[in-house]
Amino acid sequence: SRYQRVDEALPPNWEARIDSHGRIFYVDHVNRTTTWQRPTAPPAP
């Protein structure tokens, strides 16, 4: 859903941030990219 819980676990090396307008975006520290779409953790084997 559009309103996912912010405290749900993100994949490793990802961080949720809030911009100056109060919107949540996500930072990938490995690839040094950002996205508005919440990343999903790969399925557990």
Results as ranks from 00 to 15, higher is better:
Ser1Trp: 09
Ser1Leu: 14
Ser1Pro: 05
Ser1Ala: 14
Ser1Ile: 13
Ser1Met: 15
Ser1Thr: 15
Ser1Glu: 15
Ser1Cys: 13
Ser1Tyr: 15
Ser1Arg: 10
Ser1Val: 13
Arg2Asn: 14
Arg2Lys: 15
Arg2Pro: 12
Arg2Phe: 01
Arg2Asp: 11
Arg2Thr: 14
Tyr3Val: 08
Tyr3Gln: 12
Tyr3Trp: 01
Tyr3Cys: 12
Tyr3Phe: 15
Tyr3Asp: 15
Tyr3His: 06
Tyr3Asn: 15
Gln4Gly: 08
Gln4Lys: 11
Gln4Asn: 14
Gln4His: 06
Gln4Val: 03
Gln4Ser: 13
Gln4Arg: 09
Gln4Thr: 15
Gln4Pro: 08
Gln4Cys: 08
Gln4Leu: 14
Gln4Asp: 12
Gln4Tyr: 02
Arg5Met: 15
Arg5Ile: 13
Arg5Asp: 15
Arg5Ala: 14
Arg5Cys: 12
Arg5Val: 13
Arg5Leu: 10
Arg5Ser: 15
Val6Pro: 15
Val6Met: 15
Val6Cys: 02
Val6Lys: 15
Val6Asn: 09
Val6Glu: 13
Val6His: 15
Val6Ala: 09
Val6Tyr: 06
Val6Ile: 14
Val6Gln: 15
Asp7Ala: 08
Asp7Thr: 03
Asp7Ser: 07
Asp7His: 07
Asp7Met: 04
Asp7Arg: 04
Asp7Lys: 04
Asp7Ile: 01
Asp7Asn: 09
Asp7Glu: 10
Glu8Pro: 08
Glu8Arg: 05
Glu8Cys: 15
Glu8Asp: 14
Glu8His: 06
Glu8Thr: 12
Glu8Val: 15
Ala9Ile: 09
Ala9Leu: 11
Ala9Lys: 15
Ala9Tyr: 11
Ala9Thr: 13
Ala9Pro: 11
Ala9Glu: 13
Ala9Trp: 07
Ala9Gln: 14
Leu10Gln: 03
Leu10Asp: 04
Leu10Arg: 01
Leu10Ile: 07
Leu10Gly: 02
Leu10Asn: 03
Leu10Pro: 02
Leu10Met: 11
Leu10Glu: 02
Pro11Phe: 01
Pro11Met: 05
Pro11Tyr: 02
Pro11Arg: 01
Pro11Asp: 03
Pro11Lys: 06
Pro11Leu: 04
Pro11Glu: 03
Pro11Cys: 01
Pro11Trp: 01
Pro11Thr: 03
Pro12Arg: 05
Pro12Asn: 10
Pro12Asp: 06
Pro12Lys: 09
Pro12Met: 09
Pro12Ser: 07
Pro12Val: 06
Pro12Leu: 05
Pro12Gly: 07
Pro12Ala: 10
Asn13Cys: 08
Asn13Pro: 05
Asn13Val: 00
Asn13Gln: 15
Asn13Glu: 06
Asn13Gly: 12
Asn13Tyr: 12
Asn13Ser: 05
Asn13Thr: 05
Asn13Ala: 06
Asn13Lys: 05
Trp14Asn: 03
Trp14Arg: 02
Trp14Glu: 02
Trp14Cys: 02
Trp14Ser: 05
Trp14Lys: 02
Trp14Gln: 03
Trp14Asp: 09
Trp14Leu: 02
Trp14Val: 07
Glu15Lys: 03
Glu15Met: 05
Glu15Gln: 06
Glu15Tyr: 00
Glu15Pro: 01
Glu15Cys: 08
Glu15Trp: 00
Ala16Val: 03
Ala16Cys: 03
Ala16Trp: 02
Ala16Ser: 09
Ala16Asn: 01
Ala16Arg: 07
Ala16Glu: 09
Ala16Lys: 07
Ala16Gly: 06
Arg17Tyr: 14
Arg17His: 11
Arg17Asn: 06
Arg17Val: 07
Arg17Trp: 07
Arg17Leu: 08
Arg17Gln: 11
Arg17Ser: 06
Arg17Met: 14
Arg17Glu: 04
Arg17Asp: 03
Arg17Ile: 08
Ile18Ser: 13
Ile18Asp: 06
Ile18Arg: 13
Ile18Trp: 07
Ile18Gly: 04
Asp19Ser: 06
Asp19Gln: 00
Asp19Thr: 05
Asp19Ala: 03
Asp19Trp: 00
Asp19Leu: 00
Asp19Cys: 04
Asp19Glu: 01
Ser20Ile: 03
Ser20Pro: 13
Ser20Gln: 13
Ser20Thr: 13
Ser20Gly: 12
Ser20Met: 14
Ser20Trp: 03
Ser20Asp: 15
Ser20Val: 09
His21Arg: 07
His21Thr: 08
His21Lys: 06
His21Trp: 07
His21Pro: 00
His21Ile: 03
Gly22Phe: 01
Gly22Leu: 00
Gly22His: 05
Gly22Arg: 04
Gly22Cys: 00
Gly22Lys: 04
Gly22Trp: 00
Arg23Lys: 11
Arg23Thr: 10
Arg23Ser: 08
Arg23Val: 08
Arg23Ala: 13
Arg23Glu: 15
Arg23Cys: 08
Arg23Tyr: 02
Arg23Ile: 15
Ile24Asp: 04
Ile24His: 08
Ile24Leu: 07
Ile24Gly: 02
Ile24Thr: 11
Ile24Cys: 09
Ile24Lys: 09
Phe25Pro: 02
Phe25Met: 05
Phe25Asp: 01
Phe25Glu: 06
Phe25Val: 03
Phe25Gln: 05
Phe25Ser: 07
Phe25Tyr: 13
Tyr26Val: 00
Tyr26Leu: 00
Tyr26Trp: 02
Tyr26Pro: 01
Val27Glu: 07
Val27Ile: 10
Val27Gly: 02
Val27Gln: 06
Val27Ser: 04
Asp28Cys: 01
Asp28Ala: 00
Asp28Asn: 14
Asp28Trp: 00
Asp28Met: 00
Asp28Val: 00
Asp28His: 10
Asp28Lys: 01
His29Ile: 10
His29Arg: 11
His29Gly: 07
His29Lys: 13
His29Cys: 08
His29Ala: 08
His29Tyr: 09
His29Thr: 14
His29Met: 14
Val30Thr: 12
Val30Asp: 07
Val30Met: 09
Val30Pro: 04
Val30Arg: 06
Val30Gly: 08
Val30Lys: 10
Val30His: 08
Val30Ile: 03
Val30Cys: 12
Val30Gln: 03
Val30Glu: 13
Val30Ser: 11
Val30Leu: 09
Asn31Phe: 03
Asn31Pro: 01
Asn31Arg: 10
Asn31Glu: 10
Asn31Ser: 13
Asn31Met: 08
Asn31Trp: 01
Asn31Asp: 04
Arg32Met: 05
Arg32Gly: 12
Arg32Val: 03
Arg32Gln: 13
Arg32Lys: 13
Arg32Thr: 08
Arg32Ser: 12
Arg32Tyr: 00
Arg32Leu: 07
Thr33Ser: 12
Thr33Ala: 11
Thr33Ile: 15
Thr33Cys: 15
Thr33Met: 14
Thr33Glu: 09
Thr33Arg: 11
Thr33Leu: 11
Thr33Gln: 13
Thr34Lys: 05
Thr34Phe: 01
Thr34Ser: 06
Thr34Ile: 01
Thr34Gly: 02
Thr34Tyr: 03
Thr34His: 09
Thr34Trp: 04
Thr34Asn: 07
Thr34Glu: 08
Thr35Met: 02
Thr35Gly: 02
Thr35Phe: 00
Thr35Val: 04
Thr35Cys: 06
Thr35Ala: 05
Thr35Leu: 01
Thr35Ile: 01
Thr35Asp: 02
Trp36Val: 08
Trp36Glu: 12
Trp36Cys: 07
Trp36Leu: 07
Trp36Arg: 07
Trp36Gln: 10
Trp36Thr: 08
Gln37Val: 14
Gln37Trp: 06
Gln37Arg: 10
Gln37Gly: 05
Gln37Phe: 14
Gln37Glu: 14
Gln37Met: 13
Gln37Tyr: 13
Arg38Pro: 08
Arg38Tyr: 04
Arg38Met: 05
Arg38Gly: 02
Arg38His: 15
Arg38Ser: 04
Arg38Asn: 05
Arg38Glu: 06
Pro39Lys: 01
Pro39Val: 00
Pro39Trp: 00
Pro39Ala: 01
Pro39Arg: 01
Pro39Cys: 01
Pro39Leu: 00
Pro39Ser: 04
Pro39Asn: 01
Thr40Tyr: 08
Thr40Asn: 09
Thr40Ile: 08
Thr40Glu: 14
Thr40Asp: 12
Thr40Trp: 06
Thr40Gly: 11
Thr40Lys: 08
Thr40Ser: 12
Thr40Gln: 06
Ala41Ile: 10
Ala41Leu: 09
Ala41Met: 12
Ala41Glu: 08
Ala41Cys: 12
Ala41Asn: 12
Ala41Thr: 12
Ala41Ser: 09
Ala41Arg: 10
Ala41Tyr: 11
Ala41Trp: 09
Ala41Gln: 12
Ala41Phe: 05
Ala41Lys: 09
Pro42Val: 11
Pro42Leu: 08
Pro42Trp: 03
Pro42Phe: 04
Pro42Cys: 05
Pro42Tyr: 12
Pro43Arg: 08
Pro43Gln: 09
Pro43Asp: 13
Pro43Glu: 11
Pro43Gly: 10
Pro43His: 09
Pro43Cys: 11
Pro43Met: 09
Pro43Ala: 11
Ala44Ile: 14
Ala44Ser: 14
Ala44Lys: 13
Ala44Arg: 11
Ala44Gln: 14
Ala44Met: 12
Ala44Glu: 13
Ala44Trp: 04
Ala44Asn: 09
Ala44Tyr: 05
Pro45His: 05
Pro45Gln: 14
Pro45Val: 15
